[in-house]
Design a protein around this nucleic acid. Sequence first.
RNA 1: GGAAGUUUAGCUCAGCUGGGAGAGCAACGCCCUUACAAGGCGUGGGUCGUGGGUUCGAGCCCCUCAACUUCCACCA
Length: 872
Amino acid sequence: MKELETKYDHLKVEEGKYDFWLKKRVFESGQSKGPAYTIVIPPPNVTGKLHLGHAVDTTLQDILIRYKKMQGFDTLWVPGMDHAGIATQAKVEARLMAQGINKYDLGRENFLKQSWAWKEEYADFIHEQWKKLGLSLDYTKERFTLDEGLNKAVTHVFVSLYNKGLIYQGERIINWDIKLKTALSNIEVIYKPSKSKMYYFKYAIPNSQEYIPVATTRPETMFADECVVINARDPRYLKYLNKMVINPSNNELVPVIADNYVEIDFGTGAMKCTPAHDPNDYLLGKKYNLRFRKCLNKDGTVNELGHKYAGLDRFVAREEMVKDMLENGSLIKIETIENQVGYSERSDTIVEPYLSKQWFVKMKPLAEQVIKYQKSNDKINFYPARFEKTLIQWMENIEDWCISRQLWWGHQIPVWYRKDSNKILVSEKAPTDIENYKQDEDVLDTWFSSALWPFSTLGWPENSHNYQKYYPNSVLVTAYDIIFFWVSRMIFEGIEFTHQKPFNDVLIHGLIRDEQGRKMTKSLGNGIDPMDIIAKYGADSLRYFLISGVAPGLDTRFSIEKIEASWNFINKIWNASRYILMNIGLEDYQLEIDKLELVDNWIINKYNELVNKVTLNLDKYEFGLVCSDVYSFIYDYFCSWYIELAKVNLNSDNLQIRNNSKAVLKTLLIGILKILHPIMPFVTEEIYQSLINSNEVALVTTNWPKEIKIKENGNDFNYIIDIITSIRSFKSENNIIPSKTISLYIKSENKEILKVLEENRKFIGKFTYAPEIVIDKDINNSEIGKTIVLNNITLFIPMTSYLNIKEEIININKNIDKINFEIKRGEGILNNKSFIEKAPPEKIREEKEKLSNNKQKLKELNETLAILNNNS
RNA sequence: GGAAGUUUAGCUCAGCUGGGAGAGCAACGCCCUUACAAGGCGUGGGUCGUGGGUUCGAGCCCCUCAACUUCCACCA
């Protein structure tokens, strides 16, 4: 027989468990005849290790998968990782740079080899971490966003969208990363509040002292100015309309035009227009047919338009030209302002709005489909529901999606340009006469492939078995910060290409913040490695911590105390199990429903309530509620009460009673282990295997617990608990040590209750240290003692020596006041016609019962008071 | 500028469709009771951000204001 160690040792418990599950192949799909239940993991980037955010996200998914598997579903949890184009390329470049290698010297092919090597390396880290977390992933179905199958899906989608006119190539202002030399989508730009300088320049009227003042934060773009724009209703500048002014940076003459876009009250009321370097100016350029001249190179240096500043970095050039213009008098002033400056998410350099030829997805038609779909009965359900609004708002305000990236690491765009003409070929297959073509060198935005993740991982666009069986996904689990980037894109691609929603539900969770409530970021260095927590407290503690006390969609604050509390809770379960194993061993006891005692029915009833609540709340994704229900059942009812009470029965002379207790303890423990298994898989597995003395059966392959049918609900046992609790309080409050023996008289006017008391006398005696209990004896009126009035029961402890009669009279009077107040309240409510008419009958019945209890209590208290008064 | 969230015990947070406020940690008192002292038993502590409203009844629903947080969009 396998015994449990005296203390919970998470290292020993978790050692080898995952390998056991893998060996048993319990995570592989297709083993159940039940309906499919599918989750695809949000693929982590292969740029680094998993953080606590991944830990919450995957824990939630693992709970769902294990729970559904125990319920008989054919579960599939698809693992995978994201190639994370820009992020990975930036890391690989940096690593090469550290070795003194330039990627251009290396060449595209060799660079990709390096990138794949990087991917393998980081995939190993991530696999190791998934293992430590205990995730029930089906590795036979693992995918990568850059694998061959996904490439097929990606090219298929690109070509289809192109043929439908939803992908186009265009020259537009995009966010340009001068360091990585690639376009970025809007969401790859991080805006940070900064102190910037606002420069005011004179755009002079030729042969005059007059000028139009114009402000800019980016003077280096002035070399490409095409005009000055004013508002036609602005009296200050109207006289200059259609005249020419001198651009002070290069002395070019530019026209003054008018457009309502310019606000009279803002700034100087006049703005310079640089169509190739600013998105709003670009629109004006289109509107007025301006030239789109660029004055910056792709690396952020000034080009030949900058004349003497050509070749200087944009910011160096800025300093220089400002200095020069200060000297020649065209600089009016410099103000320091607070504004938002866009930085590249990956290279952390200031993003340059830049005119460039890129590929775009036309978003309007796709977004409208999503909005329409969410108005249908078949809509995707968001948990919590409010996040649907975030999606819809994003869809309503969406702009075209720039999908081309000037990178090597990614899906190369399936477009071929004919060398001898300007014809292009957009095709899933390379042209046969490839020597006459050159493929577009750019790759697609990473999100272009991750947007297909829910179905591409299942074999789409082939109509494969997996796709048929496991699509759509049951639920998508992710944090709220990724709804825009990812969730919305999966939805419109899913609807467009699979003609159905990609997942039935979307479960949104919050972020893990540090102990001070700050976001965990690299720059703050306040990140916590989940692996460190697992080493110290175990994966089970971490997992329990991550979901307990958390409301859906809200952030969690990291707390080492709470992780310790989680560990303590597991230790409690461990010890309870150890006790049960010690007393029952491996003997098999059948639960004989007909022969159970009240106490057994009482705990089974509580257990049944637990099973029902937990099942309901898991289906509602209310993991926080699951934790609190499980915790209070195990801690309060099962450990503090039932196990302690069972100690009496386990020592009983009566074989039946002993067997009842053993059977209930063992049955409920197994039930508890099953309920807890999805949350804390390792320790429950360990205890379960000890309990059945076999390491052959994995707990996750057993059935989810159901209610145990019992003959009565055992609620009358609450009288016993009330009595014990009140005696304990009495002793504690009166500085009587708990083990001090007392005499105890109990009376009640209810015959049924008296019967219950009689039958459970052994428990009362043991826990109140009352060797002799007198039930329903007329209490001698002259006797002095402590009277405790409970619902339907009055306790009396004859204890002259311990009792200060005067104080006791004061106490009882206080009590009487309280009860009178309660009676008044109850009568008030019950005399309220509206209440009687409108309140649910259940509530009315409750209030009536309370009132009659209170009246009875008052009567008892008054009698007690009379006796004390007679003796004082 | 637009949107969302948060405000409950000393701290960190639960509180599901409105029916007399809960947990963990901390504090205090007692207890080495043979599963557990990383424990047990017990106690104290909240006018649920403000001001109104709806209702027989509001922490929960509606409105006002305040503070904090986040997201989106940003004007030269």
